[in-house]
Simulated assay, not measured.
Amino acid sequence: MYKEDGEYEKALRDVIKTVKLNPEFIKYIKKDEELEPIKKLEAYKIMFENER
């Protein structure tokens, strides 16, 4: 997975694609600790900070 290679932007693009296909995935990403580095990206904050 990208996150293991430090390619967080690519991983975030995949997360965004997944959320577009299944918005319920947002609940999962909010809880997933493995995605913590991605959550620090400004693009993540813009896309998901106000999502529930």
Rank of each mutant, 00 (worst) to 15 (best):
V19N: 10
L12I: 08
E7S: 00
N22Y: 00
V15M: 12
D5W: 08
L41I: 03
Y2K: 12
Y2V: 00
I38G: 03
L41N: 05
E42D: 08
E51S: 15
E49A: 13
A43D: 12
L21N: 05
D5R: 12
K30E: 11
I29D: 02
N50L: 08
L12P: 09
R52Q: 15
Y8W: 04
N50H: 14
F25E: 14
E9A: 08
L21K: 10
N50C: 09
I26P: 12
L41F: 07
K3W: 09
E42C: 01
A11M: 07
P37F: 11
M1S: 10
K31Y: 02
T18Y: 03
P23N: 09
Y28R: 11
K27T: 02
E9M: 08
E9Y: 06
L41C: 04
K31G: 01
M47D: 02
Y44Q: 04
E4W: 05
A43L: 13
A11L: 11
K31M: 07
I46A: 11
I26M: 05
T18L: 01
K40D: 13
G6F: 04
P37A: 08
D32L: 04
N50W: 06
M47T: 01
R52T: 10
E24L: 09
P37G: 06
K27A: 14
D32S: 10
I38H: 04
E9P: 03
M47Y: 14
K45R: 04
K31F: 02
D32F: 07
V19P: 13
Y44A: 02
M1E: 10
E36A: 12
E34M: 11
K17N: 14
D14Q: 15
K30W: 00
D32K: 06
A43Y: 01
A43F: 05
L12C: 15
R13V: 12
P37R: 12
E34V: 07
K20I: 13
E34D: 15
R13G: 07
K10H: 11
D14A: 09
E36P: 03
D5Q: 12
L21I: 00
K31A: 04
Y2F: 15
Y8T: 01
F48S: 09
L21P: 00
K3F: 07
E51G: 15
E49S: 08
E4F: 08
E4Q: 14
E42M: 03
T18S: 02
K3G: 00
E24W: 00
D32G: 04
I16K: 15
E9T: 04
E36M: 12
E33Q: 13
D5N: 08
K45C: 02
P23Y: 01
K27R: 10
P37H: 10
E49L: 01
E33N: 05
M47I: 01
E51K: 15
E7P: 00
Y44P: 05
R52I: 04
G6L: 05
E24F: 00
I29C: 09
Y28H: 14
E4L: 10
I46P: 01
D5M: 11
P23S: 05
E9L: 08
K30P: 02
E51L: 13
I38M: 05
E51Q: 15
D32I: 03
K3V: 06
K39P: 14
L35K: 09
I29K: 06
D32A: 10
F25K: 14
